[in-house]
Each structure stands twice: as structure tokens, then as C-alpha cells.
Design a protein around this nucleic acid. Structure first.
Lengths: 135, 135
DNA sequence: CTTGACCTGTGTCCTAGACACAGGTGTAAA
DNA sequence: TTTACACCTGTGTCTAGGACACAGGTCAAG
């Protein structure tokens, strides 16, 4: 399998596959006549794992660590558990931040509804934003 | 005012100030003897605006557009309203995504609670992740 | 004059790929 | 066989918003 076919079959993009290859996460054989990357079953499993982990928002570096563990015969599960818990904390934070931002934006839209569009003065660039003594 | 003093007084970092200067958002005078950047009142107002807009998650590029508008004497308010609305949509999306990810992570932690830490086999890297036929 | 703390501008680095590009490949028509 | 043309390839570069590294400048104390 060449890059594009492989990527399609795994439901990702050729660029992603090339990227993972570039950083050494995937190690396809190289066709001796083409120089083209050639992917087989083992790469398929590996990529499937990588994509699943990315779905859980693991960073590529974290995935690299996990695969290194596994490649040297150690169980990667404890590491995986760790990362998942961290990720949950981070996601919770993102979640809260998105909430705050959302209400801030909604408030802005509301507050501005009846205000005019002023031209900028030397004092103000846009009174909508600068008018607020927000936070 | 020099960079660090200026940054501190505006409650941001010198690196941020330098960055904005680098890309032309701030245009401090340069001390003729030092070559150091020198910030005054106009820059203060400008930076205050920039930081407020960043709080609303405006991109630096969007802010650049707004300031360009204002600098040429046009009201930036319509543009600002536009961006805020877009941003609200984007934030809503982020918000949803964070929710999805959060529940995915929680589910993983739950599902894995009673599972052992297996060593990797040729077939599996980490059965916790690969075991799931998730989604 | 020297020490040392702090400050400066500039250059490079980060994520996770996306995009551009010159050239290779493969199939079909001529 | 040659040509045409679509598609594919690897590699190099770009992104956002600063953070960090680094060699050298500045300035008050001694």
C-alpha cells in the first residue's frame, strides 16, 4: 500500500501519514525501485492505535512515549491511564474557559445591541470594547 | 517607558509587547541613543485595546484589521460586531467539543477501572485503547 | 573602574499537520 | 513507441501567539 491508499483506508489524510512517518511514529518499508513508502499490516495496527489515542486528545509526543514503551515490551497501560486523567483535568479547564468566553461574548452582544457605531476618536478605537470596565 | 516597565504596567509580559511590536501592531519610538523601544500614552491605549480584544478571543490578525480601520478614520465597530458573532459561534463549537471529549475521557476511566495492565502483544499495544470499538 | 543584576533586540522553537512544488508513475490514445 | 495527462510522490516551508535562548548593553553600588 502506498501513502494515499493507506491513508484513505484508515480514514485519515496522506499528509497525516507522511507526518507520522517523518517523525518516526510509522516506519514503513521503502520500495527499492520507487523510494515510495510501503505500508502493511503492522503499520495499520499502529496507525489505528495512534488515531484512537488522538481521538482522546493525546499529544503526538505522548503517543510516541506510549509506543516506545510498548516497543520495548513494557505495558503502556499505566502511562495511558495517567495521560487520560491529566487530559480530563485539562479538558475540564478548557470547558470552563469556553463557558466563560461564551458568556462574555453573549454579554457583549447584548450590551452593544443599542449602541451606535462611533467613528474612532483620538481617545477611543472602538467604544464598544473600550467602554467596558469588564472584569 | 521601556518594554518591561510598560508590559508590567499593562499587566502583560515583555515578550508579548515585543511580539506586537515586531508585527507592527505597536509602533513605539526608538530611543536614538539606545535603540530601545520607548512607549507613551498612545501605545498604552492601543495595547489596552489589543488586550481587551484578546480577552474576547479575537485573533491578532483580526485586531490588526480593526486597528487599520480605526487608523484610517473609519468606525471599527461593525467589524467588531461581526467578529464577536463569529467568535460566539466558534466558541459554542469548542464548547461542544470539550463536552464530547470530556465524556469520552470519563467513559474511558470508568471502563478501564477494573481492567488489568496487560503487556503489549504483537496484536495489541494497549488493550485499554484498542479494546474499544468506540464510536 | 569593576562587579553583577537586570534589561535589550533579535533569532529560533513550539503543535500537528496543511500546502506548494518539481518531478515521477501509470494508463490510454495516437 | 511516443505523447498526453491525471494523479501520485517526497521534501521544504508555513501556520498562531507568543516563549525561550543568547550575546551584548545599561546602570547603580562599591
Amino acid at each position: 500500500m502506498k501513502v494515499t491508499e493507506f491513508a484513505n483506508s484508515m480514514n485519515t489524510t496522506p499528509d497525516t501519514v507522511r507526518y507520522y512517518t517523518r517523525i518516526g511514529l510509522l516506519t514503513p518499508n521503502k520500495s527499492s525501485e520507487n523510494g515510495y513508502k510501503v505500508f502493511g499490516k503492522p503499520e495499520q495496527k499502529r496507525l489505528k492505535f495512534i488515531l484512537s489515542a488522538r481521538q482522546l486528545d493525546f499529544s503526538v509526543e505522548e503517543i510516541t512515549d506510549i509506543l516506545t514503551q510498548a516497543d520495548t515490551g513494557h505495558s503502556a497501560c499505566p502511562l495511558v491511564r495517567d495521560i487520560v486523567e491529566q487530559r480530563l483535568v485539562a479538558t475540564e479547564k478548557q470547558f470552563q474557559e469556553a463557558m466563560v468566553l461564551r458568556s462574555r461574548l453573549k454579554k457583549a452582544i447584548n450590551d452593544w445591541q443599542d449602541k451606535p457605531d462611533n467613528a474612532p476618536t483620538g481617545e477611543m478605537i472602538c467604544h464598544l470594547i473600550e467602554g467596558e470596565g469588564d472584569e
